[in-house]
Computed example of a mutant assay.
Amino acid sequence: MGDADVVIERFRPGVMARLGLDYAKIKQLNPAVVYCSVSAYGQKGPWRKRPGVDGIIQAMTGLMSMMGDPDSKPSKVPIPIADMVTAYLSAISILAALNGRLGQGRGEHLDMSLYNCTLMLQRLSMSSFLATGQAPEKTGSAAPYAAPNEAFRTADGWIMVAAYHPARWTALCTLLQLPELLQDARFVDNQARVQNRAQLHRLLESRFASQLTAHWLSQLDGRDILCAPVSTYEEVTSTEHYRQSGIEVEL
Rank of each mutant, 00 (worst) to 15 (best):
D156N: 05
L176M: 02
Q177N: 13
Q199A: 14
F208W: 15
L217K: 09
L178P: 00
E234F: 03
R186D: 07
R207A: 09
L200K: 00
E205R: 01
A171Y: 04
Y233A: 05
V194D: 01
D184G: 09
S231Y: 10
D221S: 08
A162E: 06
V194Q: 07
T213M: 08
H201G: 07
M160S: 15
E180S: 06
D189K: 02
A171C: 06
R223H: 12
C227N: 08
L200Q: 00
L212P: 01
A151V: 13
L176T: 00
D184C: 11
S238P: 00
E205D: 06
L176Q: 02
A214Y: 00
Y233F: 15
N190F: 06
D189H: 14
L203R: 05
V194S: 04
W158F: 15
S238Q: 05
Q199L: 14
L217T: 04
L176A: 09
L172Q: 03
L182I: 02
L220S: 06
L178I: 10
G157M: 05
A151Q: 10
A228I: 09
T154P: 02
V230R: 06
R223S: 07
H201C: 01
R207K: 11
E150S: 10
P229A: 11
H165T: 03
R202N: 14
E180P: 02
A163G: 01
E150C: 11
E235V: 01
C227K: 01
G222L: 12
P166H: 12
L181M: 15
P229D: 04
V188G: 05
V236E: 02
R186Y: 11
R153C: 02
A155C: 05
W158H: 09
R197G: 04
C173F: 07
E205K: 04
Q191F: 05
T170V: 12
H165W: 14
T213D: 11
A198F: 12
R168K: 12
M160D: 03
A214V: 08
A198I: 14
L217Q: 10
F152N: 00
A209Y: 05
S238G: 13
R207E: 02
L203M: 04
L217C: 08
C173P: 01
W169H: 09
A185L: 15
L204Y: 03
M160A: 15
T237I: 14
R168Q: 13
L217N: 07
V188H: 10
A162W: 11
C173D: 04
F208I: 09
A198H: 07
A167I: 14
H165K: 13
A228N: 08
V188W: 08
T154R: 09
L178A: 06
V188D: 02
L203K: 07
Y233C: 08
L181V: 03
R223M: 11
A162D: 04
F152G: 07
D224G: 12
R223W: 13
A192S: 12
A209I: 07
W169L: 14
L226E: 08
C173K: 02
C173R: 03
D189G: 12
A214R: 04
D184F: 13
Q211P: 01
A155L: 13
H201P: 02
R202H: 14
Q211D: 04
L220M: 05
H215P: 00
